Computed example of a mutant assay.
Amino acid sequence: MLFVCYPRCSTCKKAQKWLDDNGISYTYRDIKEDNPSLEELTAWYKESGLDIKRFFNTSGQLYKSMQLKDKLPGMTPEEKLRLLSTDGMLVKRPILVCGDVVLVGFKEQEWANTLL
């Protein structure tokens, strides 16, 4: 299981504590130090079944400064994935990848239903 997060993110800290408290083992990956590749993001997007917009950190400073709210609607999914692969701070976190299951963002009940 791969746990992709940003160490200074409070939601990521909650998710990590939840994983630890439930005895779930994982490989930790800092999204700022080791940005997901285009190939990884493409696979996660397809496996998750989620709208591509869910993969964007819409509350992040970089998202806002790049005015992506206005730009994303005119982009193809491939262009969006390519953009996400350029900077980990654009990516919604945490991401938990377990086989063909991909969870984006931390919703405790969703994680519990999927993992416990």
Rank of each mutant, 00 (worst) to 15 (best):
Y63K: 01
W44A: 08
Y28A: 05
N57A: 11
T58A: 07
E40I: 00
D30F: 05
T42P: 09
K64A: 13
R29S: 06
A43G: 00
E47V: 05
Y28P: 07
K32H: 05
I31Q: 02
Y45V: 00
E39T: 03
D51K: 04
S59P: 05
E39N: 05
T58V: 06
G49H: 15
T58Q: 14
D51W: 01
W44N: 06
N57C: 10
E40G: 02
L62D: 10
E47P: 03
G60D: 11
Q61G: 12
D34F: 13
K64C: 13
E33M: 04
Y26A: 11
T42A: 10
K64H: 14
Y28V: 12
K64W: 14
T58Y: 07
D51L: 03
E39H: 05
G49C: 15
A43M: 05
G49Y: 15
F55Y: 12
R54D: 14
G49T: 15
K53I: 11
S48T: 09
T58G: 06
E47N: 13
S59N: 14
N35H: 08
Y63S: 03
T27G: 10
Y63H: 08
K53L: 14
Y63P: 03
G49W: 14
K32E: 09
N35M: 10
E47F: 07
G49N: 15
D34V: 13
N57I: 08
T27K: 11
F55N: 00
E47C: 05
L50C: 09
Q61P: 02
K32D: 06
F56G: 00
K64F: 12
E47G: 04
Y26S: 13
Y28T: 09
L62W: 11
D34T: 15
K32W: 07
T42F: 07
P36K: 01
E40H: 03
S59E: 12
Y26V: 14
F56H: 01
P36I: 13
L50K: 02
T27W: 04
Y26H: 14
D30Q: 03
S48F: 07
K32S: 06
N35I: 15
K64V: 13
A43C: 01
S59G: 15
K32M: 09
P36Q: 07
E33L: 04
L41K: 00
L41T: 00
S48I: 07
Y63G: 04
K32G: 04
F55H: 01
E33Y: 00
S37P: 10
L38G: 01
T42G: 06
P36Y: 08
D30E: 03
E40W: 01
F55D: 03
T27I: 10
L62F: 12
L50G: 02
D30Y: 08
A43E: 07
T42W: 08
K46M: 15
R54V: 08
K46P: 10
Y28F: 15
T27D: 07
D30C: 06
S37E: 07
E40C: 01
R54N: 13
G60R: 05
K32Q: 07
T42M: 02
D34N: 15
Y63I: 00
K53E: 12
N35A: 12
I52R: 02
E33S: 08
